[in-house]
C-alpha cells in the first residue's frame, strides 16, 4: 500500500500556491493535513500527479471573529476546536463536534478546510458547514469569491471549488446567547465515520423557537439540511416531545443510502434518534 509517484511542491506564500494551482489545475491536489487524502493515495484510489503542500503558507490558520461571523482559516486543525474557540454556544458546539472527529492524532493534522474540500458526506465539519449555512471563501490567482454551503457540496467528494481555487476560509454565524446548539452522531466504533449525524441550532425567544437550523450527515451523497425538522420546531416551545417529533419529521423526509454498515431503513432510524439527541443536548 504505497502511493503512486507524484511531484511535490511546497509553496511558501499564498501567491505562490495559487500560481501553482493556476499552472497545474486538475493535475494538482492540495495537501493540508492529508488525513483523508493520504489513505486514499496509499490505497491508490487517488493518484494525483502533483501535490501542493500548503503547510508552509502563512495566514491559513486560526480563527477570528468578524462582523457576526466566526472566520475559520482553512488549514485550522481539528484539534484547535477541542476547546471552545469562541465564547457562546458556537464554541461549545464546535468542541463537542471536534471530540467526535476520528482520533487525537488525526485531529492534530487534519484541517477544517481539508475536510470540506474532500467533501466526504460523513464528515462532521461538512455536516456543520452545511447545517449551519456557512459561507466558504475560495481564492484563485484571478480573485476571491464566497460560496454558500448550499452550493458548495455538489456530490460525494465533489465541491464547487474550481481546479485553480484554494479554499481560504469558512465563515460560520456567531450565534448569540439566545441560541441553543447541539450535535449527535452514531458510529459503530470510537472515532469511526458516523452512520448518521445531526447538528442543530435554535434561537429561542419568549419560550418559543423562532429560528432553527438542522443539518444531517452520513446519509446521502452530500451533507443536507432538514427543512422538515426545522418546520416542526418553529413556533414551538422546546420539550422532549417536540424533539422527538422533530426527529420523526426529519427522518420521514429522508431516503438515506444503504451500505454494509447500515441499510437505508436503519439510517432513517438513526436520523430520527440523532436529531432528537442533538436537540436534547442543545437544550440541556
Amino acid at each position: 500500500m504505497k502511493p503512486a509517484a507524484f511531484a511535490y511542491h511546497r509553496p511558501e506564500t499564498r501567491a505562490e500556491a495559487l500560481a501553482l494551482l493556476a499552472e497545474h489545475g486538475e493535475e494538482a491536489k492540495i495537501i493540508a493535513g492529508g488525513q483523508s487524502l493520504v489513505p486514499a493515495m496509499n490505497f491508490r484510489l487517488a493518484r494525483p500527479p502533483i501535490l501542493i503542500d500548503i503547510n508552509a503558507v502563512p495566514g491559513l490558520d486560526g480563527v477570528r471573529e468578524e462582523a457576526g461571523q466566526l472566520v475559520i482559516g482553512a488549514r485550522t486543525r481539528h484539534a484547535t476546536f477541542e476547546k471552545p474557540v469562541t465564547a457562546g454556544p458556537l464554541g461549545t458546539l464546535l468542541a463537542r463536534v471536534a471530540a467526535n472527529i476520528a482520533h487525537t492524532p488525526i485531529r492534530s493534522r487534519g484541517s477544517w478546510g481539508g475536510s470540506v474540500s474532500h467533501a466526504d458526506p460523513a464528515s462532521e465539519w461538512c455536516c456543520v458547514t452545511r447545517g449551519l449555512e456557512a459561507e466558504l471563501v475560495a481564492e484563485s490567482a484571478t480573485g476571491r469569491r464566497s460560496i454558500p454551503a448550499a452550493d458548495f457540496f455538489q456530490t460525494i467528494f465533489t465541491t464547487a471549488l474550481r481546479p485553480d481555487e484554494l479554499l481560504a476560509e469558512i465563515r460560520l454565524p456567531l450565534f448569540g446567547p439566545d441560541w441553543h446548539c447541539g450535535f449527535a452522531e452514531y458510529a459503530r466504533r470510537a472515532g469511526d465515520f458516523a452512520l448518521a449525524m445531526a447538528v442543530v441550532a435554535c434561537r429561542v425567544e419568549g419560550g418559543v423557537i423562532r429560528e432553527a437550523r438542522v443539518g444531517l450527515g452520513g446519509i446521502a451523497s452530500t451533507p443536507v439540511t432538514s427543512p422538515e425538522a426545522v418546520a416542526a420546531l418553529l413556533g414551538q416551545a422546546p420539550s422532549p416531545a417536540l424533539f422527538a417529533a422533530a426527529g420523526a419529521a426529519g427522518a420521514a423526509a429522508t431516503d438515506p443510502d444503504g451500505d454494509i454498515h447500515a441499510s437505508g431503513e436503519y439510517r432513517q432510524d438513526l436520523v430520527k434518534a440523532m436529531i432528537r439527541r442533538a436537540l436534547v443536548q442543545a437544550f440541556a
Partner: peptide, 12 residues
C-alpha cells in the same frame, strides 16, 4: 503533536 506517520510523507 501525535501523528500517524503512515499519513505524512517524509518530505513534509
Amino acid at each position: 503533536a501525535p501523528v500517524r506517520s503512515c499519513l505524512m510523507f517524509g518530505i513534509q
